[in-house]
């Protein structure tokens, strides 16, 4: 079956976004979205693991006995998680300290096992790699959106990387309001994630409806 790689890549961004549509991998999103920096770091780690595990699983899919496919996927995934953990610990120690145990917990991120089972085990290496990049980018969009909202509303600052920060306190001062630490707490994470998922889905459905209506109008007009 020939796969349109552009569509394969783009589907992960909105149409089949792992977070907004399937609500997968939200544990890490809730945990590491206090700052945009940790969100970006987490998404880089997830993309690395997702890409390489998808590629390897697609490569070995024909020789893996069906009865032990899940343990095999888990060995592959945990190997790449350990690799990313070691690399991060060695070369990005501050980020590693920020993310803590959640780097190791990428191994149980449903997106990765889900894509291995649902996609990489049935498709070619190229398609699996493209799918991983699309899904990884979709996860990145979600984690960054939640991080930005939480960090801005909670601290009035956006930490992009290290000392690169955007100070939005003048905006808060203009409206005579203060950031609330509620948003950097766990409860705030749930609420922000819920609102972001709701808003994104509302926009997607509105666009879909508009397109369908336009199609119907074209049909009705002959």
């Amino acid at each position: 079956m020939k796969v349109n790689q552009k569509q394969n890549f783009l589907k992960g961004l909105i149409k089949e976004n792992p977070v907004f549509v399937y609500v997968l991998g939200i544990c890490s999103i809730l945990a590491v979205t206090k700052t945009l920096e940790s969100g970006i770091g987490m998404s880089m780690a997830v993309i690395f693991v997702l890409f390489f595990s998808n590629v390897v699983i697609a490569l070995i899919k024909n020789i893996v006995p069906n009865d032990i496919r899940i343990p095999v996927y888990i060995i592959v995934i945990t190997t790449f998680v350990s690799i990313v953990e070691l690399i991060m610990q060695a070369y990005l120690p501050d980020l590693f300290d920020q993310l803590g145990v959640f780097v190791a917990l990428i191994a149980v991120n449903c997106i990765i096992l889900g894509r291995a089972e649902a996609y990489a085990s049935k498709n070619s290496v190229l398609s699996s790699a493209v799918d991983a990049l699309g899904m990884g980018l979709g996860y990145t969009i979600a984690i960054c959106l939640v991080s930005i909202f939480r960090e801005v509303l909670g601290t009035g600052v956006i930490t992009i990387w290290g000392n690169a920060k955007i100070n939005l306190m003048p905006v808060f001062d203009f409206f005579h309001v203060q950031p609330s630490t509620f948003f950097t707490n766990n409860v705030g994470a749930f609420i922000v994630l819920g609102i972001v998922i709701g808003v994104v889905n509302a926009i997607v459905f509105a666009i879909k409806d508009k397109k369908e209506k336009a199609k119907k109008e074209v049909k009705a007009n002959g």
Binding site: V72, I75, T79, I83, I87, Y91
Partner: peptide, 20 residues
């Protein structure tokens, strides 16, 4: 099969461990 896969994974991790 699982044993061989485990050995390959262990070898890869050992290599990365030496580097890092």
């Amino acid at each position: 099969f699982l044993g061989v896969l485990g050995i390959i994974a262990a070898g890869l991790l050992a290599g990365i461990n030496i580097l890092t």
